[in-house]
Each structure stands twice: as C-alpha cells, then as structure tokens.
C-alpha cells in the first residue's frame, strides 16, 4: 500500500504540490489526470524519491520513502517506473536492456537474468526482438521494452508517467494494450495519463489533480459521469 500524507513540494518559489493526500491499495489501478504543470508527474517522482519532498510523508508498504535511514535503492525495486521518454539504454540490445538490473541489482547470474529478461520481453510482445538494438525499434516497441525492463525487477507497483504522450498516435494502442494486460493481471498501477479512454475503462479509481492538489478522486463512473467538482467537470469537458 502506498500512502501519501500532506505532501508539499516546491521548485524554488513554485509551490508544485500543495498538500496531497492519497492512498493506493494493492491491486488498484489509479489514473491521475489533470492539466500539464498541475504537479501530477512530480507526485509520481516523489513516490520513488527521484524528487525530494519539502514536507509531509510517503510510505510504501509501511516504509517511509524519504526518511534518512531508508535504503532507497532497495525500495525502488518495488516501484517499477515507465517514463514519457522511453529511455532505452542505447548501447545494449533489448535483452541486455532488460537483463542489466536483474543482474547487477538483484544479483542474478548472467543466465538467470537473461532468462528473466527473455520472459518479460515475450510478455510485452517483443519475443522476436531480443537481439535488436533500441535504435532499430519503434517508439511503441521501445516503450514496451521500458515496461519489460521495469517488470524484470519484479516490482509490487508500477508507476507510469505519461507513458504514451511522446508516441506517434498509431503507436499508442500497443502500449495501452500492454498496460491493460498488466492491469488485468492484478498489478498495482499509478498512471499519470492524458488517455481518458484508458483512465475510464481500465482504472479502478481516477484522481483529478488541479494546481497541486487532488481536486477530486473516485471511481471512473463518478469522475467521468457525475463529477462533484465544477473544476473536474470543466477540465473533462475540455479534453473530450
């Protein structure tokens, strides 16, 4: 379970997150929607400590992410992350991309790591691209590679930061399908997304973030059907 309490975050003078409270239970798919610059990506980065926080707390399975004594590298293994830019390692093949952290972080043997990597790549539909270098893969394939790479650490949670925003429109579908597959398998997911269709169909809960606070959170039927907040209604009428 991920619990965010009274989270505040500044970028210099800019108050990006203004008191976020959020609970994500195991098995839940949470979509976070909102305008650009509303702080939703920053929230995600705070959860795995790629960004520091100014006050409040975040705990993952009871462990305080930003506490001094926390082994953040150990904690990050639980939190797979997929970015807007797919960030493939350009000097490694698809298989090596995925096998690298299992080998050096989880300390698996070379053979075990390759096994894990091959299975994960098959899982995301790249079983025939094991030995391709990233520059020979499409954006959609590279993003699926990034998903496989995160999954190879056997995370308990997956964080998606606008995973389809940088893709050509015709490549969005394959990545969303992969995310949908993960959701069906019961993965706990937090997806910052602009894909309203995905948010509506796949998520258990949807949070609308406005100006660094969670304006409204609830099941997709509520958010997309009868939002309580006028701001939510206005945002959704603009993006649809």
């Amino acid at each position: 379970m991920i619990i965010v309490k009274e989270l505040h975050k500044y970028f210099k003078d800019l108050h990006v997150l203004r008191g976020i409270d959020l609970v994500v239970e195991k098995g839940v798919v949470l979509s976070i929607v909102g305008a650009s610059g509303s702080g939703k990506s920053t929230l995600l980065y705070c959860i795995n400590a790629l960004e520091s926080i100014d006050s409040g707390s975040i705990t993952v399975d009871g462990e305080d992410v930003h506490a001094k004594g926390t082994d953040i590298n150990l904690l990050r293994r639980k939190l797979g992350m997929v970015f807007q830019q797919w960030n493939s390692f350009p000097h490694l093949t698809a298989l090596e991309n995925v096998a690298l952290s299992p080998r050096i972080v989880r300390k698996l043997s070379r053979a075990e790591a390759r096994d894990v990597a091959a299975r994960r790549l098959e899982h995301v539909g790249l079983g025939d691209k094991l030995n391709s270098f990233p520059n020979a893969l499409s954006g959609g394939q590279q993003q699926r590679l990034a998903i496989a790479r995160a999954l190879a650490m056997e995370p308990s949670y997956m964080l998606f930061d606008e995973a389809t925003s940088a893709l050509d429109p015709e490549l969005v579908g394959e990545v969303l399908d992969t995310m949908r597959l993960l959701a069906e398998e019961g993965m706990t997911m937090i997806c910052v997304t602009h894909e309203m269709g995905f948010a509506r169909d796949v998520s258990d809960r949807v949070a609308y973030v406005h100006d660094g606070t969670i304006e409204e959170i609830g099941p997709p039927e509520q958010i997309f059907g009868e939002p309580n907040s006028e701001k939510t209604r206005r945002f959704l009428s603009k993006v649809r």
Partner: peptide, 16 residues
C-alpha cells in the same frame, strides 16, 4: 538526465 533517472528508478546505485 532522464536516462539516468531511469536507471536509478530500476534500483541502481549512483555508481552502478
């Protein structure tokens, strides 16, 4: 920097 964040997000240490 985003690439380095990606490797850190996989649990790699600074030196890894």
């Amino acid at each position: 920097i985003p690439l380095r964040r990606a490797s850190r997000s996989l649990g790699m240490t600074y030196w890894q």
